[in-house]
Simulated scan of single mutants.
Amino acid sequence: MRFPTRSKLLSSSDDSTIAVTRTRDWSLLSSIKAPKPNVYGRPSGDTAVFGGAPSGVNDFAIHPSMKLMISVSKGERSMRLWNLMTGKKAGVLNFERSLLQEVGEGKHSTGEGLKVVWGNVDGADEFAVGFSRDIVVFGMDSTPKCRVMPDAKTKIHKFEYLTLDDEEETTIIAVATEDGRIAFFSTAAEHLTKPTDEKAELSAARLIGQIGGKDDKVSGRIKEFSIVRSETDADLLYIIGGSSDGVVRLWTASRAELKKATEKPALSELIGKLVASYETQNRITCMAAYVMIPLPEGAEESEYEVDDSEDSEADSEDDGESI
């Protein structure tokens, strides 16, 4: 689900459609239909039910201009570009076999793009497509620019671009992994490393640091995370991670610290610090974080407070402790 504006909601589903809904009255304005792929061989249980065909949009990303959208679907080793002005398909980019092999999508893997996000690095737009164990960054000409993960040994759960300065000159990618880390990578041209393997074609992004992991006493996968900027300190970031073991962890980090790390050689040292954690006693699968808005102008706090006068009277009559 994405809110490109306050008046529109876009949502994808397993019937291979992306619905455009008006938030004012929640009426369906239009529906973008992605083709359902042909079945080759026997689909895996993650792709389709037994005896069924794979269908459904895994993810989509809307360009900041609101004119373009990229989608990746089940059963497809490709991504689709959409013209949001017309709602029509603008093109299809098939993933090359060599690219898929390099990012760990072998013969028996689905080869599906699982997630896609837009970013802006070096003053130019780019987008990143996530697979099971790696991420490939493409330029606006749809040419692969680099891969993000240094190896394909750990599963990826979420990633997003993060801007480190108000001039948007420094942008990095934050990636949540199976081994309990949120790792930060730079995809700037001067930070890319050419492959040493003769068979490899993709350059690698620079690892600039991480939070979590064994060094931070986090062993379970980080399934979801959110990054929120402080309203009182422009340099302060709150990084909230939700793990499959049911723990929500809150780290703080400095944008200046992350920006300085991009200037160093590739490293994996811890950045920021863990300040709080909470046991939910439930498996976390998704999460969102936001900054609370201030009290509306002219409103009194009493309008937003719960009247607990009766409870207070009851507590005063109770000889025991009140909670």
Rank of each mutant, 00 (worst) to 15 (best):
E313D: 11
T171S: 13
Q281H: 07
G119W: 03
D235L: 01
A314F: 08
R181K: 15
D122E: 05
E224V: 15
D59R: 08
R80D: 03
G51F: 04
E321W: 11
K214P: 09
Y278E: 02
T252H: 09
L258C: 08
K8N: 10
G123Y: 04
E201K: 06
G242L: 10
D245I: 15
Y161I: 14
K153R: 15
D14A: 13
T17L: 07
V92Q: 11
K155Q: 10
F225W: 02
P150A: 10
M85D: 10
S312F: 00
E224F: 13
V175M: 02
V57C: 01
I18L: 07
S12T: 08
P64Y: 07
K155R: 12
K194S: 15
F138N: 12
S16T: 02
H108E: 15
A261M: 13
I271G: 13
E169V: 13
T177I: 00
S55I: 09
L84G: 05
S312W: 00
R255A: 08
L250Q: 10
L274I: 07
I284P: 06
K74D: 08
S132F: 02
T86C: 10
V137N: 04
T23A: 05
I323S: 12
P35F: 10
S322N: 11
H108G: 10
L93I: 12
